[in-house]
Amino acid sequence: MNHISAIIRRELQSYFATPIAYVFIVIFLVMSGVFAFYFGSLYERGQADLLPFFNYHPWLYLFLVPAVAMRIWSEERNRGNIELLMTLPVKKLAWVIGKFLAAWLFVGLALLLTFPIVISINYLGNPDNGVILASYLGSFLLAGAFLAIGSCLSAATKNQVIAFILTVVICFIFLLSGFPMVLAFFKLFLPQFMVDVIASTSFLSHYASITKGVLDLGDVSYFALTICIWLYATALVVEMKKGD
């Protein structure tokens, strides 16, 4: 526990010691605003909710989260730091969890900084703040799932660009599998229950049901399970690849 908190602190310090943190936060805030107001017509709809804001998060995360995740392990391997880390008397899982949690907290902080939009919508009307809170949680969980995937792929390669591209692709596949168009395509030749299986692996459908305000245990545990599985895979990949 002591180790994990030390790792989280060091990682967060290193985000803010480099321009990564500031670039990420600024881009995230600007883009989420642009998407919500211009493409989502948040204002023109005349409804007191943040659905247009949250609807674009998966697409925003698709490119921004892999950019955070790509450096988690590949940078350590590239610089040779991994040799230092893995010879300290610390369990491997502590590194995997600590590094992941630091990245997740960091994205969480960026998400938290979107609070002015909540204040605005409360000023303009009477939104259901419970739904908004649930949506924030859903968005945070989605970011965590993307990060866990990114952390695993980052451990697999020394090259951050490759880590980034692979993460975008895998995350895209997980998003897409719930897209109505894609599901309609599968419906043409697959039985309904298979289509349901594909739809159930989708980040998008789980995320959508959370942002509707239905905080179902199934959706939350789906994300939790996804994160755990990918983190476990990260530990395996680190072990496999560290000596290369």
Binding site: R10, Q13, S14, A17, T18, R79, G80, N81, E83, L84
Partner: peptide, 11 residues
């Protein structure tokens, strides 16, 4: 001390 003395450069 690993070869090349790796460390966190930004620290």
């Amino acid at each position: 001390l690993p070869e090349g003395a790796p460390s966190y450069h930004e620290m």
